[in-house]
Nucleic acid binder design. Structure first.
Lengths: 192, 192
DNA sequence: TCGTGGTTTGGATTATAGTCCTAAATTTTT
DNA sequence: AAAAATTTAGGACTATAATCCAAACCACGA
């Protein structure tokens, strides 16, 4: 079992992860994290000397869980089409959170891109992770040349739909959007 | 001619407008605005008591210039297709700014949606303005029923392309994306 | 000309953020 | 069990943010 210290660190990362998503990175204070994680004020600095470090730990954590998720999909889902549709599915399944706080990956990148270039390049890794996984699926589907472009297009579609659904608080738009993406994917698959 | 006071207020709004776009609303301080507008520290509070008020003035200003722009397009451009393509064109023309700071309207909404619901509803007006104008064009093009959905789809496409182009610092993606939107619009027009 | 309302200043004030420190408590190692 | 290292804990410190204030300034009509 993990040591108490490891569990404390994980609690901090979990709290920060949630708060960065819900309130955004810049609007989340150490006090917020400390309260959410139920860790005494000063103790948090034992684990993370700066807020940047904390964000990097959060991103690392997201990278790890995402990597795990994608490799499990790879294992358990047979066809590239089904895998791509599984990706679309989590968008649909996450409707309430997306309407509330947007895409965790997209909104973080949009926020950090503004004027925190160093942190942004960390956040970008998350996009890279998805992008490469998606490209792999498109390659297997029969589009090795277009794989990168198709993966970017899929990501762009997702991002756009989420932004608009959030602005208009419209779950229906999200639903129709994901269905439309699936149609597009199925056509690609059919004519591969 | 505008009074000196009016010009000062406008300088403040212009400075805030730029800074909110470049740095984001939350990361922009009064000090930033004061420096950029070259207004003495205390004077700014004569014009805007709170940062919220300042944001509302900035949004109002954006609403006004956008309204003007759209109505001029309406006047000077004959067909709905050309008008819609004009809309897409400003995306392409703004490539450098979009790669640097994202969509002024989208990123502001994403930022405020996180946990500033009151301000977000102000920022949403900008989307409404475009959305209704776009819907009008689609209606004139022959899609009165689908106008709202088409306008949302166009906005979503734009947002998605901008986010991805910014994340990957890829002007080519923005260019291909806008071209693809134009193809889509032309097809809609052809089969109206 | 004088005074009155609008405007300009710079600095004061308060709140909150991020960061640091040190001593106590706890765990681990010897 | 003693010594060493790790972890806890609370509060202190500094920087920066937002906000307020009061004195000075200025324009213009009575």
């Amino acid at each position: 079992m993990a040591t108490k210290s490891e569990r404390t660190q994980q609690r901090i990362i979990d709290a920060a992860n949630q708060l960065f998503y819900r309130k955004g990175y810049n609007r989340t204070s150490f006090t917020d994290v400390v309260d959410e994680a139920e860790v005494p004020r000063g103790n948090i600095y034992y684990y993370f000397k700066t807020k940047e470090e904390m964000l990097k730990a959060v991103i690392k954590h997201r990278m790890e869980t995402t990597t795990l998720m994608l490799s499990e999909w790879e294992k358990s889902i047979k066809t590239p089409l089904d895998r791509l549709e599984r990706f679309v599915q989590i968008m649909y399944d996450s409707t309430p959170a997306l309407l509330r706080s947007g895409c965790p990956m997209g909104s973080l990148n949009v926020e950090l891109a503004k004027d925190q270039p160093e942190l942004k390049s960390d956040a970008k890794q998350l996009f890279d992770l998805f992008q490469q996984w998606l490209a792999k699926q498109f390659t297997q589907m029969g589009y090795p040349e277009e794989a990168r472009e198709l993966s970017l297009e899929l990501l762009a579609r997702g991002q756009g739909i989420i932004v608009i659904a959030q602005v208009y608080q419209d779950p229906g738009f999200l639903e129709r959007g994901t269905k439309e993406i699936n149609r597009w994917l199925e056509n690609l698959d059919r004519y591969a």
